[in-house]
Simulated assay, not measured.
Amino acid sequence: MTQDSVDELDLALINALQLTPRASWSRLGRTLGVDPVTAARRWERLREAGLAWVTCSVGPALHHAFCMAYIEIACRPGTLGSVAAALSGLAETRYVHHLTGDRPLLAVVGLPAPSDLACYLSGVLDTMPGVLSHRAELRTAGYGEPGRWRLRSLEPAQKQALEPGGPPRTPPPAARVDAVDRALYRLLHEDGRMPFAALASRAGISEATARRRVGRLLDTRSLRLRCEAAQSITGWPVTAVLRASVPPTDLDATARSLAALPDVRLCCSLTGPRNLLLMLWLRDLPDLPRVEASLTGQTPALTLHERAICLHTPNQMGRLLTPDGRATGYVAPFSG
Rank of each mutant, 00 (worst) to 15 (best):
L111Y: 14
D116T: 06
G59E: 10
G81H: 12
G89N: 07
C67H: 15
M68F: 02
S115T: 14
G110Y: 02
E92F: 01
P112G: 08
I73Y: 04
T93P: 07
V124E: 11
A113V: 13
C67E: 02
Y120K: 02
T100K: 05
S88F: 03
G81C: 08
V109W: 03
L87Q: 10
L62N: 02
V58S: 07
G89L: 06
E92T: 13
S115Y: 00
E92W: 00
T79Y: 01
C75L: 08
A107D: 09
V124M: 10
S88Q: 02
L87R: 02
V54N: 04
A86I: 00
H64I: 01
L121Y: 13
A69P: 05
I71C: 10
V58Q: 02
L90I: 09
P60T: 13
Y120M: 03
A69N: 14
V58K: 09
Y95M: 11
H63N: 15
P60I: 10
E92A: 13
H63Q: 15
S88T: 08
S122C: 09
E92V: 13
L62C: 12
T79R: 08
P77G: 03
T55E: 10
C75N: 05
T100S: 15
L99N: 11
V96W: 06
G123V: 05
P114C: 05
C119T: 15
L121W: 04
S122Q: 11
P77D: 10
E72P: 00
L105Y: 00
C67Q: 12
D102C: 04
P104K: 07
A85Q: 07
E92N: 05
A91C: 10
A107R: 07
A118F: 03
D116K: 04
H63W: 14
H64G: 14
P60S: 12
P104H: 13
H97N: 11
S57W: 06
Y95V: 10
A65S: 11
A107Q: 08
H63F: 11
L105M: 03
L105H: 01
C119N: 06
S122E: 13
A118R: 15
C119V: 14
G89R: 11
S82W: 00
G89W: 09
G89A: 15
V96T: 04
A118D: 15
Y95L: 13
L111E: 09
T93L: 04
L87S: 05
A84T: 07
L111C: 04
A65H: 12
T79N: 00
P114F: 02
H63T: 15
A84F: 01
V54I: 14
V109T: 01
V54G: 08
M68G: 06
P112I: 03
T100C: 04
L106I: 07
Y95F: 14
C119R: 14
C75T: 15
H98M: 13
L80S: 00
